[in-house]
C-alpha cells in the first residue's frame, strides 16, 4: 500500500500544483488581456513592470485587499461555500495530469474518469452560487450553466468513450504511452482506428470551450446582458476564486486535449520527448482558447443548445458506432 514517503510526496505535489494553478490563472489572465489588446490593435496593460508583466500580482493584491461584501438577502453559508466548492475540485483534478512519464503527482488507473466526476461538482457549485446570491441575474446565469453543461457533457463523454474504446484504458499515462514515437502515432491522426479522429478532436475542443464556460459559450457570465451572471454579487477574493477556477478548468481541459489527442509529452518527430513538449502543446491550446474568445461573438442561447443536441451529439454517436465497427473489422 502507501508508505509515509508516498503521502509526503503527494502532499508536496499538491502544494506545487496549487502554485502551478494559481500562477497559470494569474498569467493566463495576462495572456488574455495582452492577446485581446494585440488582436484589437491596443496595447493592453503596460504600467506595472516591463510589458505589464507584474500586472497579475497587482490584480491579486487588489482582490485580496478588497472587502467581501455580503448583500442583505444572500444565503450566507451557501454563498461562502460556493467559491470553495468551485476551486477545490479544479485543483484536485490536476493531481492525475501527467506532465511527463514520471512527473505526475499520482498515477491513477481511473484518472480520466476522476477528472470528469470532479468536473461535475463544478456545475453544482455554480448553481449554488447563483441561487445563494438571491439575484435575478445570478439565477438566470446559474440556470443557463446547468442547461449548457448538461447539453455539452453528453457529446464530450461520447467522444471520450470512443477514445477509451481505442486505448482500452482510463490511465492517462498509459494513454500517452500508446501514442509515443512521432505525430503519426497520435490519437488525432490514428485514422486506422477511426477515420473520424480529427472530427472527434474538434468536438472535444468545442465541448471543452462550452464546459469551461468560455466565449462564444460564456452564457453564465454574459457581461452585456447579465452583468456578471452567477458571480454578480461576489466581491474580492470570492470573485477571485471563481476566476482562478475558470482558468484552472481551461488548463485541465487543454491538458486533457493534449493527453487524449496530441500525444502528451511526446515529440512530434520523435526527438527528446519530455514535459516541455507537454507544456508547448498545452499552451498552444490555451492560446487557441483565448483566440477563439476574441474572434467569435457570443452565440444566442438557442443556437448554443441546437449546436449540441442537433449537430454535436449525432456526430459523436456516429463516431462511437464507427469506432466500434472499426474495432471489430480491423483487429
Amino acid at each position: 500500500m502507501y508508505s509515509l514517503g508516498d503521502i509526503v510526496r503527494l502532499l508536496l505535489y499538491l502544494v506545487g500544483l496549487i502554485g502551478f494553478g494559481a500562477f497559470n490563472a494569474a498569467y493566463l489572465s495576462l495572456l488574455e488581456r495582452k492577446q485581446s489588446a494585440w488582436m484589437q490593435l491596443r496595447r493592453g496593460p503596460t504600467e506595472v513592470g516591463p510589458w505589464g508583466l507584474i500586472q497579475p500580482v497587482a490584480d491579486g493584491l487588489k482582490l485580496l485587499s478588497k472587502q467581501i461584501l455580503l448583500p442583505r438577502d444572500v444565503n450566507v453559508p451557501l454563498f461562502l461555500l460556493a467559491p470553495i466548492m468551485v476551486v477545490v475540485p479544479a485543483i484536485v483534478s490536476l493531481v492525475t495530469i501527467p506532465f511527463s512519464e514520471t512527473l505526475v503527482a499520482h498515477r491513477y488507473n481511473l484518472g480520466l474518469l476522476m477528472i470528469f466526476s470532479f468536473g461535475a461538482i463544478n456545475i453544482f457549485a455554480l448553481l449554488i452560487a447563483g441561487w445563494a446570491s438571491a439575484n435575478k441575474y445570478a439565477s438566470i446565469g446559474a440556470v443557463r450553466v446547468v442547461a449548457q453543461n448538461i447539453a455539452y457533457e453528453v457529446p464530450m463523454l461520447l467522444v471520450v468513450i470512443a477514445l477509451v474504446m481505442v486505448t482500452s484504458s482510463f490511465d492517462l499515462v498509459e494513454i500517452v504511452k500508446q501514442q509515443g514515437g512521432g505525430c503519426w502515432h497520435w490519437n488525432l491522426l490514428k485514422l486506422g482506428a477511426n477515420p473520424m479522429m480529427p472530427a472527434s478532436f474538434l468536438i472535444f475542443f468545442i465541448c471543452m470551450l462550452a464546459e469551461t464556460n468560455r466565449a462564444p459559450f460564456d452564457m453564465v457570465e454574459a457581461e452585456s446582458e447579465l452583468i456578471a451572471g452567477a458571480f454578480t454579487e461576489y466581491s474580492g477574493m470570492g470573485f477571485g476564486l471563481f476566476f482562478i477556477a475558470e482558468y484552472v478548468n481551461i488548463l485541465i481541459g487543454c491538458s486533457l486535449a493534449t493527453i487524449l489527442f496530441l500525444g502528451g509529452w511526446d515529440c512530434p518527430f520523435g526527438l527528446f520527448p519530455g514535459p516541455h513538449w507537454f507544456l508547448i502543446k498545452m499552451y498552444a491550446l490555451c492560446f487557441t482558447v483565448v483566440w477563439v474568445r476574441w474572434s467569435f461573438p457570443r452565440t444566442q442561447f438557442y443556437g448554443l443548445l441546437n449546436l449540441s443536441w442537433k449537430i454535436l451529439i449525432p456526430l459523436a454517436l456516429v463516431n462511437l458506432l464507427l469506432t466500434a465497427v472499426m474495432l471489430k473489422l480491423v483487429p
Binding site: S117, F118, G119, A120, F124, L127, V146, I150
Partner: peptide
C-alpha cells in the same frame, strides 16, 4: 461513478 451520476446529474 457515484459522484459523476448522483452529484453530477441527480442532485443538479
Amino acid at each position: 461513478m457515484q459522484i459523476l451520476v448522483y452529484v453530477g446529474a441527480v442532485c443538479i
